[in-house]
């Protein structure tokens, strides 16, 4: 199992979201460290979305729509719903939130991001069905919109979540 090139590859950079209803679309967030990627996939309409969040909280008027979890989550969920997904049916998965650097002890943002994501989803009556959060390894994630497969690639492996 590998992350492969795809003509319908849509990349979510830091603070960005991508979504699609195309069965051959692959939604990707590269090189997640402390950042968190949230994947949403509706198994009935086969609509998927991927957001690449940077920080737990921040101003609502940020230049990047999903830079901050507290102010950007609703914008992301509404965008995926507008594409045809229902949050009642959708499967939500998240990855990232690693602690890449431990020197100085001041860079524990990954853990705060993971906590903020769980809290923000719970406040909206939602929960994650699977996660790959925390640890010390970087990750690239890929949501395959056609079948909802969510792949996690690290330096040592590719796994399906």
């Amino acid at each position: 199992m590998t992350l492969t090139g795809n003509p319908s590859l849509l990349v979510a950079g830091i603070g960005e979201m991508v979504m699609s209803s195309s069965s051959d679309a692959h939604l990707v967030a590269y090189g997640l460290g402390s950042c968190i990627a949230l994947a949403v996939w509706d198994p009935r309409t086969k609509v998927g979305g991927l957001a690449h969040f940077m920080l737990p909280n921040g101003p609502a008027n940020a230049a990047s729509p999903v830079k901050f979890i507290d102010t950007g989550l609703d914008a992301f969920l509404k965008s995926v719903e507008a594409k045809g997904a229902s949050m009642n049916r959708s499967v939500l998965k998240a990855a990232g939130g690693a602690a890449m650097l431990t020197v100085g002890g001041g860079l524990a943002i990954g853990k705060r991001n993971a906590e903020a994501m769980n809290t923000a989803l719970a406040q909206r009556g939602l929960s994650l069905s699977a996660t790959a959060l925390g640890g010390t390894a970087g990750r690239t994630v890929q949501l395959e919109v056609g079948d909802g497969r969510f792949l996690i690639k690290s330096l040592s492996s590719v796994t399906e979540l």
Binding site: G31, G33, M100, L101, L107, I109, T140
Partner: peptide
């Protein structure tokens, strides 16, 4: 501290801070 990782993952750790 030495880290062997994806460039994006290393950089986002400091950018977030």
């Amino acid at each position: 501290q030495v880290v062997i990782e994806m460039a994006g993952a290393v950089l986002d750790a400091v950018l977030l801070d």
